[in-house]
Simulated assay, not measured.
Amino acid sequence: MLTEALTALAAAGGTAVAQAAGTEAWAGIRQRAALLLGRGDPQRERAQLERLDVTAAALVSAVGDEVDRVRQVQAEGWRGRFETLLEDLDERAGQEAAAELRALVAEARNAADSGARMEGNVFHGPAAIQVGDRNRQDNHFGSGA
Rank of each mutant, 00 (worst) to 15 (best):
A5W: 05
A5E: 15
A5K: 10
A5H: 05
L6F: 10
L6V: 00
T7Q: 15
L9S: 08
L9F: 07
L9H: 11
A10T: 12
A12D: 15
A12T: 00
G14W: 08
T15K: 10
T15V: 11
T15H: 12
T15E: 14
V17F: 05
A18I: 06
A18S: 12
Q19A: 06
A20R: 09
A20L: 09
A20K: 13
A21W: 10
G22D: 12
G22W: 04
G22S: 14
T23P: 10
T23M: 06
E24P: 07
A25G: 14
A27S: 14
G28K: 13
G28R: 13
R30H: 14
R30F: 05
R30Q: 14
R30P: 09
R30C: 13
Q31R: 13
Q31F: 03
A33W: 02
A33M: 05
A34I: 01
A34K: 00
L35F: 03
L35T: 12
L35P: 00
L36M: 00
L37S: 01
L37G: 03
G38V: 06
G38I: 01
G38H: 09
G38Q: 09
R39K: 11
G40L: 08
D41I: 00
D41A: 05
P42G: 04
P42I: 08
Q43E: 15
Q43F: 04
R44A: 15
R44P: 13
E45A: 10
Q48Y: 04
Q48V: 03
L49H: 06
L49E: 11
R51C: 02
R51G: 13
L52I: 05
L52D: 04
L52A: 01
D53H: 04
T55V: 09
T55M: 11
A57E: 15
A58V: 02
L59M: 05
L59V: 07
V63G: 08
V63P: 00
V63H: 08
G64K: 01
G64E: 05
D65M: 03
D65K: 01
D65L: 02
D68N: 00
D68E: 01
R69H: 02
R69N: 03
V70I: 14
V70N: 03
Q72N: 07
Q72S: 12
V73P: 00
A75E: 09
G77C: 09
W78I: 02
R79I: 13
R79K: 15
G80F: 07
R81M: 12
F82V: 02
E83N: 05
E83K: 09
E83A: 10
T84H: 11
T84E: 15
T84G: 15
L85N: 08
L85Q: 07
L86V: 09
L86M: 14
E87H: 10
E87N: 06
D88F: 07
D90Q: 13
R92M: 14
R92G: 13
A93R: 15
G94V: 02
E96W: 02
E96A: 12
A98Y: 10
A98P: 07
A98V: 09
A98L: 10
E100K: 00
E100N: 03
R102A: 13
R102G: 05
A103F: 00
